[in-house]
Amino acid sequence: MSLDINRKKVTKNAYRVTKRRNMTAIRVRVPGGHLDAEHLKTVAEIAQKFGDGNVHITIRQGFEIPNIPFEKMNEVNAALKPLLETLQCANGVVIENLDNGYPGAGMRNISACIGNRVCPFGNVDTSALAAKLEGQLFPNDFHVKIAVTGCPNDCIKAHMQDFGIIAICEPQFDYDSCIGCEACANTCRRKVTGAITMRNGKAVRDVRRCIGCGECVLACPTSAWTRNQTKFFRLVIMGRTGKKNPRLAVPFLNWVTEDVVMKVIKNTIPYIDKHILRCLAKEHIGYIVDRTGYDTFRREVLDGIELNSEAKVAKTLQWPGYDTVNDANMKSYNQRKV
């Protein structure tokens, strides 16, 4: 009997059409890329029981389990239940029927660097923030890529996302504890932006140069530099790979609080809903912003949000990137003529 499935429904259920006829692959969402090792057993079981025993670790920190026959989808969905309960519902995602698998697939897995659960440089618990975002944004059919990174080293490559959330810290200075050892100024000059200079034996921070990495806090032997207990973020936006115009994300907001980040990303959903080209299968948010322009995007996503007093908003945005159509520049090397 020939297979008769609604491909669009299947896609929204996080299954995909694969190269092999009648075979699909399921994408397992792991917000923040962090999970109880016990869940690896569930992933392994699904791969062994319904697939071919292989699992692909995706770039977004999920799992893609390939070579599952389409007719096994219901059984796979039932097997996914413990993952949905822990990784989605426990983070606040509302799923009506836990036996039906993922209720959406447009918004990609929210990835995160290892963050301050492990990394000394991490300014926040990135996985926890990713899980919180999952709770607020999933399920969602729009194509949006989000990642959280713990510091401006950007190990998760937030600059390749539609929304790259970079945790930063405001270093605060206790004048009386500074012994003028210059460790902060040296590390900032060598590794960062040279935002700290010495004046009369004390460190002085240039707030316009400081990128909030926290290296000075790590370097200080007397705890003269410590972190402001309010956590701040830089939000870089609309970075992308892709066939037309790959580019790095650029800063849209700087020194904003978690609350602002959350609200801005949530405001993006009605913005996409209003402007998306419905004739395309899934228009990517970056191209929508290209079409509406930055001013419209900024106005609509900041609508109704009270920014914290430290917040800065970009006046204009220009993305460093290139057009993949590059015929004039690319020449045959072996038969080159002037």
Partner: peptide, 8 residues
């Protein structure tokens, strides 16, 4: 609270 060398 929170003023250690590492965040949190």
């Amino acid at each position: 609270p929170g003023r250690g060398r590492f965040s949190d």
